[in-house]
């Protein structure tokens, strides 16, 4: 069966759970401790698609600092981007709008999916579906609810990116 490699980057504010999402997706585990990522951490996972195998090279980028030239360097060659926000911190949605604007400025056109993370923290949720729909329209990307802790929506997010990549190719 044919194997295809694609680079996928994770973008989002600090502490939204990017590293935890990757860890859940690649290693199937969750760690409650928060450890800021510096630079970039690259992981791999293969997923099966109907006609081929897809090797995902997942770039977990540091979040929180203003987007700069260094981040642009990391994004080179990215086929897809998983933008991550935190359902308990409404300001993290705003950060994604900035990322979208900056992607447009450097003329990158990867497929984009939004993961609205920490859906397991029901009592602390501060972002409702209408805000997510608004964000989804503004940055022209579908969204789904995810939890790196429970695994909800994690594989689905990467599957959705794979599906969009196929759609874009055809």
């Amino acid at each position: 069966m044919k194997t295809v490699q694609r680079k996928i980057c994770l973008l989002g504010d600090f502490s939204v759970g990017k590293t935890s999402l990757v860890r859940q997706f690649v290693e199937g585990r969750f760690d409650d401790r928060y450890l800021s990522t510096i630079g970039v951490k690259i992981s791999r996972r293969q997923i099966s698609r109907p006609d081929y195998l897809l090797n995902l090279l997942i770039w977990d980028l540091a979040g929180g600092d203003d987007y700069d030239d260094v981040t642009s360097g990391y994004l080179r060659g990215a086929a897809g981007i998983l933008m991550v926000c935190d359902l308990t911190r409404p300001l993290t949605l705003h950060t994604l709008r900035k990322y979208r604007k900056q992607l447009d400025e450097i003329k990158l056109d990867p497929v984009v999916v939004i993961a609205a993370n920490k859906v397991d923290l029901v009592a602390e949720r501060a972002v409702d579906d209408s805000l997510l729909e608004e964000l989804s329209q503004q940055i022209n990307a579908p969204y789904l609810l995810s939890s790196a802790k429970t695994g909800e929506g994690v594989a689905a997010a990467f599957d959705q990116i794979a599906g969009l990549l196929e759609k874009k190719k055809s």
Partner: peptide
């Protein structure tokens, strides 16, 4: 030049 900073 192409730079990748702080690759883990």
């Amino acid at each position: 030049a192409l730079n990748l900073d702080a690759v883990n």
